[in-house]
């Protein structure tokens, strides 16, 4: 198998004495969408928190394999430097700066990765999100729920990341907006971005994913191609509820 872009290998992590993740391994190939699903309390969000050092990693490796061949030890990288090495994170809630303008939100997200100038990257994103472009001088707090989520994605993309980490991107969005969001993720992926997301809207997320992992009780339970997992009767029954 070729080297994945991003990888967790045998990671155990938790908070204080409580261990949540137990020997979890995840591989994210370049240019793929990978989704982690599982029931509540399975440890999905803890994976992202472990990457950001919020949950304490007791064992295992987290590595970003840059296209240049360089392997970066994520555990040894300070959280505020992760954006510099090419990892962008979109939290589930409070994922925009509400008192800053839309334009300033993008400015704050900018990192010089890939040697692209801030203005150039902004222009590209505004072309992609005309709704944001029209209102770029407005405070971000005035945006609607769907627009906020687009701004959160745009802010993360401003850093020119190798990989985009999304924590429950569809949480709290109206059903019509959920479809729009997943379409947007596909579009972002098609422009070359690699995505690793944790999602509770499992069926919908797996349908657009190249690969999926099912987590249970802090352990790898199943994995497979996204579309196959989405319709796997056993998994559908156990985790997603029957329709």
């Amino acid at each position: 198998m070729t080297t994945p872009l991003f990888e967790l290998k045998g990671v155990s992590a938790g908070y204080g004495d409580v261990q949540i993740l137990n020997d979890v391994s995840i591989q994210v190939p370049a240019n793929a969408i990978v989704t982690i699903v599982g029931p509540n309390g399975a440890g999905k969000s803890t994976i992202l928190k472990a990457i950001y050092g919020i949950a304490k990693v007791s064992q295992g490796d987290i590595t970003l394999h840059k296209l240049s061949g360089e392997a970066i030890d994520v555990r040894k990288t300070k959280p505020h430097n992760l954006a510099d090495i090419g990892i962008a994170y979109v939290p589930q809630i409070e994922n925009i700066f509400t008192t800053l303008t839309i334009d300033e939100n993008l400015d704050v997200g900018y990192k010089g990765n890939g040697g692209v100038a801030s203005e150039e990257r902004k222009e590209k994103l505004y072309k992609q999100y005309p709704d944001l472009a029209i209102r770029k001088k407005d405070r971000a707090g005035t945006l609607s729920g769907g627009q906020r989520q687009m701004l959160a994605l745009a802010r993360a993309l401003m850093s020119g990341p190798d990989i985009l980490l999304l924590d429950e991107p569809s949480a709290g969005l109206a059903p019509a907006l959920v479809d729009q969001l997943f379409d947007e993720l596909v579009r972002i992926n098609e422009t070359g971005a690699t995505i690793l997301m944790v999602e509770q809207n499992a069926r919908r997320a797996l349908e657009i994913s190249n690969y999926g992992y099912v987590l249970d009780m802090g352990k790898n339970r199943h994995e497979g191609e996204g579309k196959a997992l989405a319709v796997d009767p056993e998994i559908v029954g156990i985790y997603f509820g029957k329709r």
Partner: peptide, 16 residues
């Protein structure tokens, strides 16, 4: 201003 608005988002956005 970003940090003052939302410290945890500022930290993951790469603000020192």
């Amino acid at each position: 201003r970003a940090f003052s608005d939302n410290p945890s988002l500022a930290a993951v956005s790469g603000i020192n």
